[in-house]
Design a protein around this nucleic acid. Structure first.
Lengths: 231, 231
DNA sequence: GGTTATATACTGGTACGCCATAATACGGCA
DNA sequence: TGCCGTATTATGGCGTACCAGTATATAACC
């Protein structure tokens, strides 16, 4: 979220991405996508070899991920992929509910037709992705939906918070959307949000957003406890 | 907050605190306490000398603070202390309102007398600190008040989010509490929160918490715009 | 005077080395 | 045989030196 400061004119396409940022994204994706499992040790020198960068970079990346909550540091042991416990996951869903509800209410009160259009577009993308069973695309469109909710009313900070928290429950998200009937239930709940925004009913939009997240939380809880008894 | 920057006498105890964590706290405090002003450049090798640590540590600390939002990185220029604009500050207050309102409601619904007792204790501390004109103590007790609100209902994640955001507006906080009549108004609003929690009235607690933050936001806005026209 | 060369200062990035600690393997001694 | 102290290894914590690229200030040159 630190782009959009460029202001460049005809500058040749030099990606100002530093090596560190590239490495950061790589490792984060590796964790989020499940390539590294929770509890896995992240050995510095090992990561250096795998990423092809120096230890300095790796250390900085690990520190960054640590402050994002994706990596935990055990004293005298070193960094591991953070474990997610049920309680923490529920808290994250709760916070998302509060913030997404807030954003939905603001959207409804703004009464801007482009908001509704953008949300509908994302929703349509979700439905199509469900139909095509393209689950990564479902997640992306869902994120886009919520991003619209926040950024259309200029709540970039809140969106940042939500994004930060969301990566920590990413693997839960990818499981909740696969549960039975979620392909119908999920979009229907989101449609309720859009409908309330279209009508300018802030309270209804708030409640609908809250409901949607609450439902996701319940599913996640079931998934997580099933997972824990499973292994 | 002890000795370290100039003195070397830390031989006896160092339980698990790494040098990096010490440096991190030092630099963060330096920013939060206004020793480094917004826009100040944070020259790596300069910080090395001041802190007495290597560039490795300084780089990791800067990266950490960057992800906390306290430090911004200009491409090819280097890190500076992040500037806080009015819009961002208002968003932070808004988020705090949503989360603190949520926590207050949960406290009210829990109906636990120890919560009320702890909140009253912090509130009394605030009043006494105001009477003694000890502004840092006011801030500390205020933080303790909110920490109680969150942790007594086991919302540690939300408290983490609020803490993270709060450091970014710390200098605003220290100015808002000094405004006229805030020594009476602030505690009175907080008392309303406590009162609602005591009665178990979740909705009232939510509203009271929201009002308190909203009022702080308005004051902060006035302070900030006055500051900007001032210089 | 204006343009250009140059010095300076800084970050981004890398390599390498040292030390401290924890775990593990090993070898000697009762 | 079994226990205990030590050597080894793995790894993180930390420091230093170095190179490259860039931006800014400064001096030199036409």
């Amino acid at each position: 979220m630190n782009d959009a400061l460029a202001g460049n004119a005809i500058r040749v396409e030099r990606p100002t991405k530093t090596l560190r940022e590239l490495a950061l994204d790589k490792v984060r994706d590796a964790i989020v996508d499940g390539y590294f499992r929770p509890g896995d040790r992240l050995v510095e020198r090992d990561l250096c070899a795998r990423l092809g960068v120096s230890r300095t970079i790796v250390r900085e990346v690990l520190r960054h991920l640590e402050s994002e909550g994706l990596v935990a540091n055990l004293p005298n042991k070193g960094p591991i992929v953070a474990r997610l416990d049920l309680n923490e996951a529920k808290q994250i869903y709760e916070i998302r509910g509060a913030l997404e509800g807030m954003a939905a209410r603001l959207c409804a009160e703004r009464n801007d037709s482009t908001v509704v259009a953008a949300l509908e577009a994302s929703l349509e993308g979700i439905r199509q992705s469900y139909a095509a069973k393209d689950m990564p695309a479902v997640l992306n469109h869902t994120s886009a939906f919520y991003q619209t909710l926040f950024t259309k009313v200029d709540r970039h900070v809140a969106w940042g918070v939500v994004s930060l928290l969301t990566v920590r429950i990413n693997h839960l998200r990818s499981m909740t959307i696969k549960t039975r009937n979620r392909d119908v239930e999920g979009p229907a709940q989101m449609e309720r949000i859009v409908e309330a925004i279209r009508k300018g009913d802030g309270e209804a939009a708030y409640t609908a957003a809250l409901d949607h997240v609450a439902r996701a939380s319940v599913i996640a809880e079931a998934v997580l406890s099933a997972q824990q008894t499973g292994d």
